[in-house]
Design a protein around this nucleic acid. Structure first.
Lengths: 194, 194
DNA sequence: CTTGCAAGTCTACACTCGTATACTTATATC
DNA sequence: GATATAAGTATACGAGTGTAGACTTGCAAG
């Protein structure tokens, strides 16, 4: 057989994903402007220049990070669309009690971290529109689906922001079960499955 | 009479508030890191050094801007506490159909703009806790008031973020009356006045 | 073993940031 | 009108940023 890539010389693929993971963490923690390429590279075990080699620019790196977190636009399985059960599952996912859609929740952290940077905001905007479209088509039913999907995303973004970034005690330290119980009827109203 | 301050020499007070207003706009637009002292000063008609003279440092300037937007922690008048009417007024205020609490809504824009900056995040955190406390005490009734107040603030922050910063079309371009109509029952559930 | 080429590093450049010091200008009082 | 003083400006510095080009090193094939 040809065996074109037997062991990976100095591990190009692995380095690339290491940079991506490091960047994701750095952007979520320090924001687009706050995270430096030198720090991202160092955490990945390489030099800052490798970032430029692999991703072209900081802007493109951020775009790839955001796209990576949003890779799975389906927040919930489509098993129980339109049922009250959906609101419960959504609420539990939002407070971290279930795993599906965690990548998307991470994505909101990254996007919030975009701060006011022009390029970061543009990238975040495009990704959010994609997610919004998927949500409006796949999750929300009835009248004003786009608007209700947008309200749902706003709630998700706001809760993530307050929990993860601000660390508002009433949300960050609260019992997830209690939070899920409080969020469920709210989400049900938004989804129109109350 | 003494007439201690007849016409104000070169208008110290006015310059100070001009810088404050300019900073508020710049922070909301470009974020804490993105907004530069030179740009803020230029928009206020002075040099960058005046900012240092009047506020000491960029960090202190930001703190004062945030405190300024949060000066009025009462989002709504306490006239109809606990009535379903309250949810309606709150919803209309949130989409800009009524004026009360607009400063606080601006505040969430400024705070989102804090991005991942350490100092900005800390300042935003403190202010949000103050508002949260006021909300939990004055607006929300019943069980789990702190948690429900936090969910309400999350919704406010998320909607502001999506409308003003991201510019999600479904929210930014939608008819405010429609949006208010959709938000009203959601807020009613959060407030427990449904 | 030699050689080609990708993987990775070093050094440096142009730029912007926040801030400090020294200077200039306008205003109000004597 | 002279003068003290606050308001405002000019210049510059050191640090940190993203990025570019030349260099070095390791791996795999001839």
């Amino acid at each position: 057989m040809a065996d074109e890539k037997p062991t990976r010389r100095r591990n190009a693929e692995e380095t690339r994903s290491a940079i991506l993971a490091s960047a994701r963490r750095a952007f979520a923690e320090s924001g687009y402007d706050g995270a430096g390429l030198r720090g991202i590279a160092e955490a990945a075990g390489v030099t800052a220049m490798m970032v430029g080699r692999y991703f072209g620019s900081k802007e493109q790196l951020f775009a790839e990070v955001v796209a990576d977190t949003m890779r799975d636009p389906v927040i919930l399985s489509a098993d129980n669309l339109g049922s009250p059960q959906m609101a419960r599952e959504f609420a539990r996912a939002l407070v971290g009690l279930s795993t599906p859609g965690q990548a998307v929740l991470d994505g909101f952290r990254v996007m919030w971290a975009s701060g006011g940077s022009e390029v970061a905001a543009r990238i975040a905007r495009e990704q959010i529109r994609t997610v919004h479209h998927a949500t409006a088509e796949g999750l929300v039913r009835g009248d004003h689906a786009p608007e209700r999907a947008a309200i749902l995303l706003s709630l998700v973004a706001g809760v993530q922001l307050m929990r993860q970034q601000i660390g508002l005690p009433a949300l960050a330290d609260a019992d997830p079960e209690v939070l899920a119980g409080l969020l469920e009827p709210v989400i049900a109203v938004v989804l129109g499955v109350a």
